[in-house]
Amino acid sequence: MRGLIIIAAALALAGCESEPKVTFTDAAITLPDDPLELPEGPGREAVLENCTACHSPSTMLQQPKVSAEKWQSIAEKMIKVYKAPVDPKAIPQIVQYMVAVQ
C-alpha cells in the first residue's frame, strides 16, 4: 500500500496575470481493515459489543494504567458525551476487563 493512491486535483500553473488554475477531481481511498484485536479475558465480549463501534480497541488498550473508577468514568463519559449505546449492565464487566488487561 505504499505510494499515493489518491489521484485528486492537479495544481496546474497558468500565466502570472491570472490566478493559477486549480482543478478538483474525485478522490477516494481504502482504509486498512480494523482487526479488532483484544486479548482474551473475562469481559472481552462486553467490550467488543459495547466499545468498538466507534473506535479501534487501541483507544482503550493504549491508555496508561488507570483505576477501576477511572474506567467507570470513561465508560460513563462515552454514554453521556458521545451517546455510546452501551448496555449499563455490561459496564462492570467492561471495567473488570480493562483493569485486568492493562
Binding site: L31, P35, S56, S58, T59
Partner: peptide
C-alpha cells in the same frame, strides 16, 4: 506509527 486504525 499507528495510534489507532479507526478513526485513523
Amino acid at each position: 506509527i499507528v495510534q489507532r486504525i479507526r478513526p485513523p
